[in-house]
């Protein structure tokens, strides 16, 4: 702490002034927290958009899927497109199905297992995409207050050292240093609170979407299994 500078009494107390007269550790903490806050909000906005898009896609796909359209046609339209969510699961399952039947697979049981595996994989990939970066929100939510507190403690330490050096305890000497130090905690909380709230909401949303996709994959697996049985019966 090379610059134990004393805030002159009656100093400017605007937020910018507080930031500028803080020590470099506190400044670093504040800048870091600001970045975390920016990134948190970027994630929040991104996820909100992505989730609403995903929800829309799921709705549309379910509508199409249950409209009675033949699975072959659906597969043909979706295969060359970039699909998300249920579409991706459907495409993965159908691809496996096609490959197996084109090569004339013998064992229906093995085929069933393979299709399930492919769907699981697709589901996991989708879930990963949904939940990716939510961890950062959780981390920010829990760590930002501590980081801010760290900045505050350092700032208060510095200002006390400055007070001791100035041998003056008048409130106008003490206050600016403490206000400046508290700014770090304020920024920490500012970053943490939205992060925590958003994390809770987004993770529950992702969970709901995941359950919905899982349900679809189970259902589709059942449909395919029935199809396999039918084909086996035809052959026999």
């Amino acid at each position: 702490m090379e610059n134990i500078a004393l805030a002159e009494p009656g100093a400017h107390l605007s937020i910018w002034a507080l930031f500028m007269q803080a020590g470099w550790v506190v400044k670093l903490v504040m800048i870091g927290l600001l970045c975390a806050s920016i990134w948190t909000w970027a994630i929040i906005i991104d996820k909100l958009v992505a989730f609403s898009r995903m929800r829309l896609a799921l709705n549309r796909f379910e509508q199409v899927f249950w409209s009675g359209q033949s699975l072959e046609d659906l597969y043909r339209t979706l295969a060359d497109r970039k699909t998300t969510g249920m579409g991706a699961i459907f495409v993965a399952a159908m691809r496996e199905w096609k490959k197996s039947f084109e090569k004339g697979a013998k064992s229906p049981l093995a085929l069933q297992t393979r299709i399930d595996k492919a769907m699981d994989l697709a589901l996991t990939r989708e879930m990963e995409r949904l939940e990716g970066r939510l961890g950062f929100l959780a981390t920010t939510g829990s760590a930002a207050p501590f980081i801010g507190l760290f900045g505050t403690v350092i700032g208060i330490m510095t200002s006390f050292q400055a007070i001791a050096a100035s041998k003056n305890t008048s409130l106008s000497v003490v206050a600016p240093g403490i206000a400046e130090a508290l700014l770090a905690t304020a920024i920490g909380l500012l970053a943490a609170i939205p992060a925590v709230i958003a994390y809770n909401k987004l993770s529950s949303d992702a969970n709901k979407l995941g359950v919905r996709m899982e349900g679809f994959s189970d259902e589709f697996s059942a449909i395919l299994s029935r199809q396999i049985d039918e084909k086996v019966a035809q052959k026999v």
């Binding site: 600001l34 806050s37 920016i38 990134w39 948190t40 909000w41 970027a42 994630i43 929040i44 906005i45 991104d46 996820k47 958009v49």
Partner: peptide, 13 residues
């Protein structure tokens, strides 16, 4: 992600 980041930066500014 870019939309999220830019909008977040704008928001913070």
């Amino acid at each position: 992600m870019r939309t999220g980041l830019t909008s977040s930066v704008i928001l913070h500014t």
